[in-house]
Design a protein around this nucleic acid. Structure first.
Length: 576
DNA sequence: GCCGTTTTCGGCCCGACTGTTTTCAGTCG
C-alpha cells in the first residue's frame, strides 16, 4: 500500500505550488487530493490499475494523471518543475512562526535566502527589516522563533495522555476558583486525537475579567502568552499552550463547535451552509439574506440548521462523517460505559505495581462484570515473566478470588505471551490449555525484516488458544515507530484465523490506531478488544483513551468483544 | 484543479490578530 507515500507527494506539490505563487484554489485542490489519498482505505495502486482514481472525491482527471505518472515513474513532472522554480528548503523556513509561503518566497527572491541558517544571518545583520512587508518587529520575531522561543504548535505536540488530564485539572481549578457558569474543553482533546498541540477551553461567565484573573493563577502556569478581556493564553510547565475564552451564553454552542474542529470538518460544514443560504461562524448560524441568527446556543443548533444530526467530536475529521450525517448513516459509536470488562492487565506476579486483588477491586469499582488477568510469560530473557508453575500458583489465587467475590466480578485466567524471534511462544501449544484465554504480542527482536515479523505474527495467530494479538504494530508514541508490519497481510490472517486485534488503550501505544482500526473493520470486517495493558490500578482508567481510538475509527459496540456481557464473553472464550 | 438536486462555468470557509500599513496582506487556527 503506497497511499501514504503518494499522499506525501501531493502535500509536497501543494506546498511548493503555494510557494511559487500558484493559484490558491489549485493549491487547495492538491491538498484535498493529498488528504483523500491519505484517508483512502484501499491501496491507491489498485484503483490506479483499475482506472478508478476519479471515483475518489477530490481527484479529477488532472490529478489522476499525476498519480499514475508517479506510480509508474516515481516522479511527478509538475513537482519537478516547481522544484526548479523554488528551492524545496524554503519549506523549512515556513516552520517558523510568522513566516508563511509569501514571506518565505519574498526572502528568497529579494535576499536569496534559502535556509534557516541564512535567514538567521540576515536577521542578525538587520537586512530583513528593509524588505517590503517586513519591519523591525518582524525581524525580531524571526530571530526569537529561530532561537526556539516561538515554535509553531505542530512542532511540540504531546500525547493525549498528558493533555487530557492537564485540561481536566485546569477545568477543575476554574470551576472551584472562578465565577464560570458553563465550561467545556474543545479542540483536538475533545476529538481524542492521539497527539495534541494545545488545549482549548471555552466558558461562559458574567464576569469574564475575573475568570481571566483567576486563570493566570492556575498552579501549572509557566508564562502568560497573551491576556485580554475574553481570551487569555498561558504556557504550562510542559510548554503546552492553553487558551481560555469566555463567550456569550447565546454563542456557547457555536463556539464549542467552532473550536472543536477539525478545521477540515468545519470547512465542509461551512461549504454546506453556503449552499443552503446560511453562514456559520463561532457566534452562530446566520441566514445570509436577512442576517438573522437562527441558532448557536447549543452545539446541536449548528448541525440541525443544516438538516444534520449532531456529529460526535471524535468523527469530525472530514473522513466522510458529514456525508454519513446527510444520509442519516452515522454509526452508533461505542461508549465507555459499554465496556463490560478489561482484558489486558498485569499484576505483581509479573511487572505490575499492584497485587492481583488490588487490580480486581479497582475493576469492581469501575463496574466491570469481568476481567482477564494477563501477566507476562517467561520467555528466555524476558524479565519478571511467569513460569508455568508460577502461573499455576496465580490460577489458585484467581480461583480463590472468584470464590470470594462470587457474582460481583468474574476473573479470567489469561496470559500475555511473547511471540519469540522464531515465531514460537513461551510454552508449547498443549501447555496453553490451562489458560482461559491468551493474548500474544511481539516484545523482542523488533528490528527483524518485515517478512520475518509477519511469519512470527502469523504463526502465533494460528495457535488456537491465542485469540488476541496485543498492540499489533508495536509502536510506542514518540519513542519508536513499531516493527515492520505488512498491515494488509496481518488483517487478512486475522480474518482467516478469527483472531481479534487489540486496541491498546495505553495512551503511549493506542495500537491499533484509529486509521488502521477503521480500515480493519471496513475492509476485513474484523472485531476488536480494547485493553488497557494496565501495570497499576490507575492504569485501568486508561480505557477512555482506547474508547477514543475506537470512536475515531467509527466503531460500534458490536465491533468490540469486551462490550459483551459476561455470559456471552465466556462463550467467546470457549469457542474453538 | 475540482465540482455541480439552483451549475460544464464560476465559484472555491471564516474571522482574529499582527505588523505593516493609511486600508490591507499575510498568517493562523
Amino acid at each position: 500500500m503506497r497511499n501514504k507515500e503518494v499522499s506525501q507527494k501531493f502535500y509536497e506539490l501543494a506546498s511548493l505550488a503555494e510557494l511559487a505563487g500558484e493559484n490558491p484554489f489549485k493549491v487547495n485542490a492538491y491538498v484535498k487530493a493529498a488528504r483523500a489519498i491519505e484517508y483512502l482505505p484501499t491501496p491507491i495502486e489498485d484503483l490506479a490499475r483499475e482506472n478508478r482514481l476519479t471515483e475518489i472525491k477530490g481527484i479529477g482527471s488532472g490529478i489522476a494523471k499525476k498519480i499514475v505518472q508517479y506510480l509508474e515513474t516515481g516522479k511527478i513532472e509538475k513537482l519537478e518543475e516547481f522544484k526548479k522554480k523554488v528551492p524545496p528548503s524554503l519549506l523549512e523556513m515556513e516552520k517558523i512562526s510568522g513566516i508563511g509561503p509569501k514571506g518565505a518566497y519574498a526572502l528568497y527572491k529579494h535576499l536569496g535566502i534559502t535556509t534557516v541558517e541564512e535567514l538567521k544571518e540576515a536577521a542578525l545583520n538587520g537586512k530583513i527589516r528593509s524588505l517590503p512587508g517586513f519591519g523591525a518587529k518582524k525581524e525580531e520575531n524571526i530571530l526569537k522563533a529561530i532561537q526556539g522561543l516561538r515554535k509553531k504548535k505542530v512542532e511540540k505536540r504531546v500525547s493525549i495522555g498528558i493533555g487530557l488530564p492537564l485540561a481536566e485539572a485546569i477545568v477543575e481549578f476554574l470551576k472551584k476558583n472562578s465565577p464560570i457558569e458553563k465550561i467545556q474543553v474543545c479542540g483536538s482533546i475533545r476529538r481524542m486525537k492521539e497527539k495534541i498541540g494545545d488545549i482549548d477551553i471555552l466558558a461562559t461567565s458574567e464576569k469574564p475579567e475575573e475568570v481571566m484573573a483567576r486563570f493566570i493563577e492556575v498552579p501549572m502556569i509557566k508564562d502568560i502568552v497573551v491576556k485580554g478581556e475574553t481570551k487569555t493564553s498561558i504556557l504550562t510547565n510542559e510548554g503546552l499552550q492553553v487558551d481560555l475564552r469566555v463567550v456569550e451564553p447565546s454563542s456557547f454552542g457555536a463556539a464549542i463547535q467552532y473550536f472543536t474542529g477539525s478545521k477540515q470538518h468545519n470547512i465542509k460544514l461551512r461549504e454546506l451552509a453556503i449552499k443552503s443560504g446560511y453562514k456559520i461562524n463561532e457566534y452562530g448560524v446566520f441566514e445570509v439574506k436577512t442576517e438573522r441568527k437562527i441558532g448557536g446556543e447549543k452545539e446541536e443548533d449548528v448541525y440541525n440548521a443544516l438538516g444534520l444530526p449532531w456529529i460526535p467530536p471524535e468523527m469530525r475529521e472530514d473522513r466522510g462523517e458529514v456525508e454519513a450525517a446527510m444520509t442519516n448513516d452515522l454509526p452508533n459509536l461505542v461508549e465507555l460505559f459499554d465496556i463490560k470488562g478489561d482484558i489486558h492487565m498485569h499484576t505483581t506476579y509479573s511487572d505490575g505495581a499492584n497485587t492481583l486483588e488490588e487490580m480486581v477491586k479497582r475493576a469492581m469499582e469501575l463496574g466491570y462484570e469481568y476481567i482477564v488477568v494477563s501477566d507476562h510469560a517467561k520467555a528466555l530473557g524476558v524479565a519478571s515473566g511467569l513460569t508455568l508453575d508460577e502461573y499455576k500458583r496465580q490460577k489458585r489465587e484467581i480461583d480463590e478470588l472468584n470464590e470470594k467475590f462470587g457474582d460481583k466480578i468474574r476473573i479470567f485466567f489469561g496470559a500475555e505471551l511473547n511471540i519469540l524471534s522464531d515465531g514460537r511462544v513461551d510454552f508449547p501449544e498443549e501447555e496453553l490449555e490451562i489458560f482461559d484465554i491468551c493474548l500474544a504480542g511481539i516484545h523482542t527482536a523488533l528490528t527483524q525484516p518485515m517478512k520475518k515479523i509477519m511469519e512470527r505474527l502469523k504463526k502465533a495467530m494460528r495457535i488456537k488458544k491465542i485469540k488476541i494479538i496485543a498492540h499489533p504494530t508495536g509502536r510506542v508514541i514518540g519513542e519508536r515507530e513499531g516493527y515492520e508490519v505488512d498491515l494488509e497481510e496481518l488483517l487478512e490472517e486475522a480474518k482467516n484465523t478469527g483472531t481479534i486485534l487489540e486496541i491498546n488503550a495505553n495512551p503511549k501505544r493506542l495500537d491499533l490506531n484509529d486509521m488502521n482500526a477503521m480500515h480493519a473493520k471496513k475492509t476485513y470486517g474484523l472485531k476488536f478488544v480494547i485493553g488497557t495493558d494496565a501495570h497499576s490500578r490507575e492504569g485501568l482508567d486508561d480505557m477512555k483513551y482506547g474508547i477514543g481510538v475506537a470512536r475515531r475509527a467509527w466503531l460500534t459496540r458490536a465491533d468490540i468483544i469486551n462490550t459483551l456481557p459476561l455470559k456471552e464473553f465466556e462463550k467467546f472464550i470457549r469457542e474453538e
